[in-house]
Write a protein that binds this DNA or RNA. Structure first.
Lengths: 129, 129
DNA sequence: ATTCATCGACTACATCTGTAAACGAACGCG
DNA sequence: CGCGTTCGTTTACAGATGTAGTCGATGAAT
């Protein structure tokens, strides 16, 4: 399929991702609590968060557990799965599936700090063996 | 702004990207020629290509040069700029701007071939010195 | 019990995307 | 000199997305 992002192949939009991110940092959270985490940053109203959460629940990537009159929400997918999927999508789409050119691009556009380079070196050493 | 993708901050959608890609491979091309490059792959009709091209022209990322009754189109932005921008967006959004975790993820999801590793190692050696 | 704050559900609506058909102008062939 | 073919332009339309308002139920506080 086109969208290998959620179990059902639904995509998580950028705005929805902000909500997921809050839930990945701490969960379960109520809609209001999520808003406390993201509304300032994104300049959103609580209503917006509610909508996004509903959509995420509809997409089956967020779980709603009843807690009295309200719901507490938790992610149903791992952050690492999402992030891994998105990364691969990008590499596939823009670099024909090869990671090396991506690395080259980041290097070229000065997007790699010395720290990054050091970490990469360690990572490569780790992987090679 | 939010979208550092085009001069005017317009985004290039995924479908539009397929058209850009054709133009980056060879240009200028007429709409029909673009279609020859992408319509089989994406299972599109010529009409779809025409729409996408118009939108890209409207977004100022494709240039239309008259050639008799028709137009020949060329990219107005470099592929490397687009690709670099998108890469950085992803790294910023998902990895807080650090590149190393991205590669750690790719490694984990088996997206790194031995070739990739070798190339990246060579690149790293190049960068560090 | 009455009021007030809060919650989720439903509704709204503009824009962007994907995908294309309709249409009228113009070119090329016969 | 018509006629079909080929262009670009305009219009279409459903689904996704961003952003939020309304509303009825319910819970808390007095």
């Amino acid at each position: 399929m086109k969208n290998p992002v959620t179990p059902e192949g639904e995509r998580i939009s950028e705005a929805e991702y902000a909500v997921m991110d809050a839930l990945w940092q701490a969960s379960p959270l109520s809609a209001t609590e999520i808003c406390a985490h993201v509304c300032q940053d994104r300049d959103w109203s609580l209503a917006t968060v509610k909508t996004l959460v509903s959509r995420l629940v509809a997409k089956n990537v967020v779980d709603a557990e009843a807690d009295g009159r309200r719901y507490l929400y938790s992610p149903r997918i791992q952050r690492s799965d999402y992030v891994g999927g998105e990364s691969r999508r990008l590499v596939d789409r823009l670099f024909g599936g090869k990671a090396a050119p991506l690395f080259a691009h980041l290097a070229e556009s000065e997007a790699l700090s010395d720290d990054d380079l050091a970490e990469m070196e360690a990572l490569l050493k780790e992987l090679r063996k």
